[in-house]
């Protein structure tokens, strides 16, 4: 039996109700999605059933440090996805900018931010993407940048299109940009996706809705920021990113 959007919506509503009930009973906020999230079908066989094992933090813990990157790891044009080919890519040019912070609000400096995305038609430059939307010879959709001293990053790109997928019948992913982030510790590693405000598909997407807490989910949606828009050039979106997890400095500070 093919699952319809209505089936998925029903599952999502049930899970949300359960979450609200647990919250009312005093459960702490789940900032991250559960790994077992049936409306996202691919999660069924790919989540551990045993609980995670807590690692006691001591200065020997290798994961409290992490990979470092530097100016050899990026080129000047990596942050501008509209200038990586001979011609101009199709679509609406946008600037995406924000700050990378740790949970104490400190900027994560000089770290690598990677992004990847579909083109304006909703097609990835990936051989396995069979969506019959056109490829754009002037757009690959991969960017990299190092954060500045204040943790800031900035990309120029084009607004990605929505695309269909086979989670259920008539399943569509809202427009989104994939992000990969490093902190000062491997424990702070994060891969996530940024969405656009006002997208009517947000409510239907089991991947976004796998974040069951409303406030947490809202943090994945960028804000339109007119001060970031550039005249005759691009529309601006602001998106700050906060990394979870301890780092070596937490130990130094006795936390």
């Amino acid at each position: 039996m093919t699952l319809t959007q209505a089936d998925i919506d029903g599952e999502l509503a049930e899970i949300r109700a359960g979450h609200e009930k647990a919250r009312a009973a005093g459960a702490s906020v789940a900032h991250h999605p559960p790994r077992d999230f049936p409306p996202y079908r691919s999660s069924l066989l790919r989540h551990p059933k045993q609980p995670l094992v807590a690692v006691r933090r001591d200065p020997e813990t290798v994961e409290l440090s992490g990979p470092v990157f530097g100016r050899t790891d990026v080129t000047e044009l990596d942050h501008d996805l509209t200038r990586q080919h001979a011609g101009e890519p199709l679509g609406e040019r946008i600037t995406v900018s924000g700050r990378l912070l740790d949970s104490a609000g400190r900027p994560v400096r000089g770290q690598l931010v990677e992004l990847w995305q579909a083109n304006a038609s909703g097609r990835y430059a990936h051989r396995r993407d069979q969506h019959p939307a056109p490829l754009d010879p002037n757009f690959t959709g991969v960017g990299r940048v190092l954060t500045g001293d204040d943790g800031s990053y900035r990309f120029t790109t084009i607004k990605p299109g929505a695309y269909p997928w086979r989670n259920h019948e008539n399943a569509w992913r809202p427009a989104h940009i994939h992000f990969s982030l490093f902190g000062s510790a491997f424990t702070q590693r994060l891969v996530t996706q940024m969405y656009f405000p006002g997208d009517p598909l947000l409510a239907y997407d089991p991947i976004l809705q796998s974040v069951t807490d409303d406030a947490a989910r809202a943090r994945l949606v960028a804000a339109y920021d007119h001060s970031l828009s550039r005249p005759e050039q691009s529309l601006g979106y602001r998106w700050d990113i906060v990394l979870d997890g301890p780092s070596a400095t937490w130990i130094e500070e006795g936390r």
């Binding site: 906020v29 900032h31 991250h32 999605p33 996202y40 691919s42 912070l101 740790d102 949970s103 104490a104 609000g105 990847w116 579909a118 990835y124 990936h126 396995r128 993407d129 994939h178 990969s180 994060l190 891969v191 996530t192 996706q193 991947i207 976004l208 796998s210 974040v211 406030a215 947490a216 989910r217 943090r219 994945l220 990113i241 906060v242 990394l243 979870d244």
Partner: peptide, 13 residues
């Protein structure tokens, strides 16, 4: 304390 940005799948692509 800033609440973290939620994680998402790396996806297929």
């Amino acid at each position: 304390y800033l609440p973290p940005t939620p994680s998402h799948t790396v996806g297929p692509f």
